[in-house]
Simulated scan of single mutants.
Amino acid sequence: MTKSILILGSFSKGALELQYEKNFTLLNWAVKSIDIQLPVNYKKDRNGLTKLIHCVNPSIYYNNINRSILIESALLKPLVILVFKGMELFPETLLELRKHCKLLCNYNPDHPFKFYSKGAGNINVVNSIKHFDLHFSYSENICKQLIKDYQVNSYCIPFGYDETIKPIKSKSSHLLEQVLFIGAWDKDRELKIKNLNEFNLQVFGSNIWNKKLRRLKNISYHNEPLYAQDYANACLSASGILNFLRPQNIIEQSHNMRTFEVPGYNGLLISERTEEQLDFFEEDKEAIYFDSIEELKDKLQFYKVHEGLVSKIKANGNDRSIKSGYGYQNRTKLMNSYINKYLE
């Protein structure tokens, strides 16, 4: 008998939801996906006024998507509903969704009740915690907090990488044997990168980086989207990929998506040091870690003249990724096992 799952979240390029959508299908689930973020963004991003209204009273932009989700779920009556984060969904909507499925689950790629940055969460996320049957988080520490503070069922499913993508060596000069940073801008990351001006870094991300870095002679900005195959090719081709964690990851001593993607795609992970990452990849054997810009500079200088070690660490990190099952196929199988346990 085919089992049905309704996945609610964001399905833009690089979104985590896409991995679970694909891999639940491979596990013979009948998957229906609805983007709950795109309709809201379309309305709020029309002009400056709509953005201001969203800042003051975002709920008015959520009404339509909540109504349509309730109609769709009543028609589908899926066995499982899986919500990613859920900023756009009212707690009252979740109470109604429970009537249309056997199991209501949440995967939050951020902290569910401590918000360290804009867009990380809202009151809907906090007030909805108690309404889910199952919670999934990338962080073991967050799971422990959910169990302790909210007495809910919570399980850790770390981030991963798409093992179906096979990286190909690039011939682009700005990728080949260069140190790259690929990611969104924030003030903290900007300051760290500016302190590395001597290392000829290549930065990929939104256009705001161009404005922030234009006066730096040795740091180059590339307005090229790097997703899927392009991202994997960059990891393989570069001498290393910098990973500046968000404040929440440092506080939690956790990890982010790049933690697994870079080694998974045969790249050299150069990341701020945390307890979880040290468990996933052994320091100086499978990945490189640092606690300060000074330590990072020393390591960049060292590995710049030890290319053989770089190649070895890349190979070790990729081997660890494969042997430890860090890909999203296994992550989805793990989630599937928890779901099946509560469906029995």
Score class of each variant (00 low, 15 high):
residue 174 H to D: 15
residue 218 N to M: 07
residue 195 N to G: 11
residue 205 G to V: 06
residue 195 N to P: 05
residue 196 L to Y: 02
residue 139 S to M: 09
residue 158 P to C: 13
residue 143 C to N: 12
residue 142 I to Q: 02
residue 116 Y to M: 08
residue 167 P to N: 10
residue 142 I to R: 02
residue 152 V to M: 08
residue 198 E to D: 14
residue 184 A to N: 12
residue 136 F to K: 02
residue 226 L to Y: 01
residue 218 N to D: 13
residue 212 K to S: 13
residue 168 I to D: 13
residue 101 C to K: 01
residue 149 D to L: 11
residue 203 V to S: 09
residue 143 C to L: 06
residue 129 I to F: 07
residue 179 V to E: 08
residue 140 E to Q: 12
residue 173 S to N: 14
residue 233 N to G: 13
residue 156 C to S: 13
residue 149 D to R: 02
residue 104 L to Y: 05
residue 89 L to A: 05
residue 181 F to E: 13
residue 216 L to Y: 09
residue 208 I to T: 10
residue 167 P to K: 01
residue 202 Q to W: 01
residue 155 Y to P: 08
residue 167 P to W: 13
residue 116 Y to H: 12
residue 160 G to M: 08
residue 147 I to K: 12
residue 193 I to F: 07
residue 173 S to T: 13
residue 146 L to D: 09
residue 158 P to G: 05
residue 137 S to C: 08
residue 117 S to D: 14
residue 152 V to S: 04
residue 213 L to I: 08
residue 89 L to Y: 00
residue 180 L to W: 00
residue 202 Q to I: 07
residue 126 V to T: 15
residue 126 V to G: 05
residue 211 K to G: 14
residue 105 C to E: 05
residue 195 N to F: 10
residue 139 S to R: 00
residue 94 L to N: 00
residue 214 R to V: 15
residue 91 P to H: 00
residue 157 I to R: 00
residue 165 I to Y: 04
residue 164 T to R: 03
residue 104 L to G: 05
residue 174 H to R: 05
residue 138 Y to S: 14
residue 223 N to G: 10
residue 131 H to P: 10
residue 172 S to E: 15
residue 94 L to D: 04
residue 162 D to W: 01
residue 233 N to D: 15
residue 134 L to Q: 01
residue 209 W to P: 06
residue 96 E to D: 09
residue 107 Y to I: 10
residue 132 F to K: 03
residue 224 E to G: 03
residue 215 R to S: 15
residue 91 P to D: 05
residue 173 S to I: 14
residue 123 I to K: 07
residue 191 L to E: 15
residue 99 K to D: 15
residue 162 D to S: 07
residue 102 K to N: 10
residue 176 L to C: 03
residue 142 I to Y: 02
residue 173 S to W: 09
residue 100 H to N: 14
residue 195 N to I: 12
residue 186 D to E: 10
residue 196 L to R: 02
residue 101 C to G: 00
residue 185 W to Y: 14
residue 142 I to C: 09
residue 191 L to Y: 08
residue 219 I to Q: 02
residue 218 N to Y: 05
residue 106 N to G: 04
residue 127 N to D: 14
residue 130 K to F: 08
residue 117 S to T: 01
residue 150 Y to F: 15
residue 203 V to T: 01
residue 116 Y to S: 13
residue 228 A to T: 10
residue 217 K to V: 14
residue 120 A to I: 05
residue 231 Y to A: 10
residue 222 H to A: 14
residue 109 P to S: 08
residue 116 Y to E: 07
residue 160 G to H: 01
residue 92 E to C: 06
residue 105 C to V: 06
residue 86 G to W: 05
residue 180 L to M: 10
residue 94 L to T: 02
residue 199 F to C: 06
residue 94 L to F: 06
residue 168 I to C: 04
residue 97 L to R: 00
residue 144 K to R: 11
residue 92 E to L: 12
residue 221 Y to D: 09
residue 162 D to T: 04
residue 227 Y to E: 11
residue 161 Y to Q: 09
residue 109 P to H: 04
residue 169 K to F: 13
residue 155 Y to H: 07
residue 213 L to G: 03
residue 106 N to I: 06
residue 194 K to P: 03
residue 99 K to L: 15
residue 174 H to F: 15
residue 212 K to N: 13
